[in-house]
């Protein structure tokens, strides 16, 4: 009885994870600019990968494999924000303007420099 229940739960987790991975990849293709594509990519990197790995853990039982899968999940959760932040910052630095329907940076920044796009730093033409 119990193995069957675990099988059903892990199959459901793997199916849901597969769905979210594909949805995230579809979003990467559909979205209009770099910044919005990052949002779509993070769906498949967090929820899709998390559900898939949770399903694999239930299939593996409690062995060393479980701990390795948890390490992979931890690797995703610690490196994904670092890469996304670096990518967004580099894109903004290269003056790639995001498509915006609402820009509240100048209203909300107390320090006037903080919210400005970094256009004022003219790069030396080398």
């Amino acid at each position: 009885m119990m193995p069957l229940l675990i099988d059903i739960v892990s199959w459901a987790l793997i199916a849901a994870g597969s769905a979210f991975v594909v949805i995230g990849a579809v979003g990467v293709v559909r979205m209009p600019d770099v910044y919005t594509r990052m949002h779509a990519a993070s769906v498949s990197e967090t929820l899709g990968a998390g559900l898939l790995v949770a399903g694999f853990i239930l299939q593996a039982g409690f062995t060393l494999v479980t701990l390795k899968l948890l390490f992979i999940l931890g690797l995703f959760f610690f490196t994904a924000p670092v890469v996304t932040h670096a990518l967004a910052q580099a894109a903004l630095h290269e003056d790639i303007e995001p498509v915006l329907s609402d820009d509240r940076r100048n209203d909300r920044a107390t320090d006037t420099v903080a919210g400005q796009p970094e256009k004022t730093n003219a790069r030396p033409s080398s």
Partner: peptide, 15 residues
């Protein structure tokens, strides 16, 4: 842009 390609490369690595 090149950043789209870097993002796609990172996503390919995750997959």
């Amino acid at each position: 842009t090149v950043f789209d390609r870097v993002l796609a490369g990172n996503t390919i690595g995750t997959f």
